[in-house]
Design a protein around this nucleic acid. Structure first.
Lengths: 345, 345
DNA sequence: GTGAAAGCGCTAACAT
DNA sequence: ATGTTAGCGCTTTCAC
């Protein structure tokens, strides 16, 4: 038999019968309404326990016309350390409110993002927190109009007027590259995600900004954007270091690429001569030698702020027009970014 | 206004009216039943689009008597790299089946585990995958009887007969400690989680097994189990290294403690003299110097196998008695575990 | 192929 | 302080 249909479970009526009260009284006890005598409440709780009664949220939601007491969270990859920290922060805000969190990964696929939204809308989630893979968010407007609150994180909303919480990707990247310039580098490689990924593009623009400010021309031959696997990134860096006039420093614009770049440098034995600044880094980034200098984001704060904003929309304490939070990044010096370049003073 | 009650959304009746068919016909189109002419199906889809209709899963679930098309996943901490890999693997199995994943963290608190179970039961999830914080799982028996399938991961079920998928924690720990003994260590510190955590206890027993096999007595002064923070672990290791007769090697029984232990060794400058084997390690464990030797688990496989088992229970293809999968661990030599001890041959 | 009627389990609205 | 009635939006059942 596939998917057993009707599962035997005690209903409110069963509980009411056993406790010799009406169904409405049972409902009152469950929902903590007052005007129920202690004696009867006790009798009802007894009956619930004896029957292993479990409240049916679907029926409650349907009749009361409320939403699911759940929010949907759409991330690029729930197993990415940045994403899972965001996820956890969101959970911590909503658990005390009795709101569950349903999450989905997109792997940067806009189609999967839309599928997740359709599923979540069918569940009548109270709100959505989305790290968008798509570039045009207007497809959400019908759901927003229907009352589903949406918060964009990591990347700003486009063609849709909703709240957002992002890191200052462009300025962060500029800081990182300027740091390398300060330490005497002028030939700085850029290793990042595909240009289509908005946050990646912003980081690239930050790289361009810093080079322009230093009067350094862009050289496409030291720029690689987008890899099919971490191993590809490692290989690309190794190849860039083999040619004459190789970069003396790298700016790595994505957390999952930092490991491969460090690995590549070790493979050719240049981890103490070629400088690296990473965007975000990885867990043991302070333990490698030299330590990895990074532009750090605060994923927990991003998730928390997004969740607090959504919670405020849900309970009506936030009723203003869309807010756009841009969180600053911070440069953490650990050694790899302070290796001197040929123009060091 | 707090929590707007009834949200204006087109219902199936609205769609039916616009398409000039009955509600049942709209239902047929949505559920892909046959016996609907193409012409009418097209008309219905048109109407749905024009009204921004979103199917109401709660109503569907209620009337059809089905479950939520969702599963609950209860983990110690969804932001832990091990847990989030498990989570992602579970998502990958259920997404193609149209089943959503709701996750919750317990932080090793059995009360929060039970609260999560109650919430998920109220949602009528199809099944639960639990990394248990509790030690007596009999509280789940009523839900299991009511048809909710439960799979335990990482730690075996107790007082409840359900499927499980765990790593061979005890044997893995024995392998790791035996490895240190082989390289000439006899004074081996143990750094692990609280004894109440079952997987941690099993790893401790594996440590005891290996020492017993080598004829080494247990010395409580080199064993610390349970920390309130990573910094505490780091401090404990530093202190252990300050005394005379300090351990010449450490077995670190939990992934989040590996970083602190490595940090402590560097702090006292002994990372190249004191050997370390970690259980699970961290992301950049191959990039530190020396590389961290670890007993590796396969979190993705654990999640996948648990999810496949649950999916099999849901569709009835698995109907046998409870299965208990014990996945082997593997020793990955990277240097830190091969530093010779005083008894090296 | 399509439709009408009934009711899933709960709670809003209105008694009493 | 408790009960009665009706109906949320959908799908089952049965009719045509």
């Amino acid at each position: 038999m596939r998917r057993p249909k009707r599962i035997q479970r005690a209903t409110m009526r069963d509980v009411a019968a056993l406790a010799e009260v009406s169904a409405k009284t049972v409902s009152r006890v469950i929902n903590g309404e007052k005007y129920v005598s202690n004696e009867i409440a006790e009798r009802v709780r007894d009956a619930m326990e004896r029957l292993d009664y479990r409240h049916n949220l679907a029926a409650s939601q349907l009749r009361a016309g409320t939403n699911a007491a759940a929010i949907g969270v759409i991330l690029v990859d729930i197993s990415n350390p940045f994403s899972s920290a965001v996820h956890r922060a969101i959970e911590d805000v909503f658990r005390p409110l009795g709101i569950s969190v349903i999450a989905a990964s997109t792997d940067e696929d806009a189609v999967r993002e839309r599928e997740a939204v359709v599923t979540f809308a069918a569940r009548r989630v109270d709100g959505l927190i989305i790290m968008p893979a798509s570039h045009d968010h207007s497809y959400l407007s019908a759901d927003v109009r229907a009352g589903t609150h949406v918060i964009m994180i990591d990347r700003p909303p486009s063609f849709l007027n909703v709240d957002s919480v992002v890191s200052d990707n462009r300025a962060g990247a500029t800081d990182g590259v300027r740091h390398l310039v300060k330490y005497g580098h002028r030939r700085i490689g850029f290793i990042g995600d595909w240009p289509e990924v908005v946050s990646s593009q912003l980081r690239f623009e930050g790289y361009e900004d810093a080079l322009a400010a230093a009067g350094i021309d862009i050289d496409e031959s030291v720029i690689v954007r987008g890899f099919d696997s971490p191993a590809d990134a490692e290989g690309a860096v190794v190849r860039m270091l083999e040619v004459r006039d190789a970069p003396t420093a790298f700016f790595v614009a994505q957390n999952v690429l930092c490991g491969p770049v460090v690995r590549a440098l070790r493979q050719v034995g240049q981890q103490r001569s070629v400088a690296v600044v990473g965007f975000d880094g990885f867990e043991g980034a302070d333990l490698v030698e030299p330590g990895l200098t990074v532009i750090a984001q605060d994923p927990f704060r991003i998730g928390e702020l997004a969740a607090e904003t959504l919670a405020g929309r849900l309970d009506g304490t936030i009723a203003s027009t869309a807010s756009h939070h841009v969180l600053p990044t911070s440069l953490i010096e650990r050694g790899s970014g302070e290796l001197p370049g040929p123009f060091a003073s």
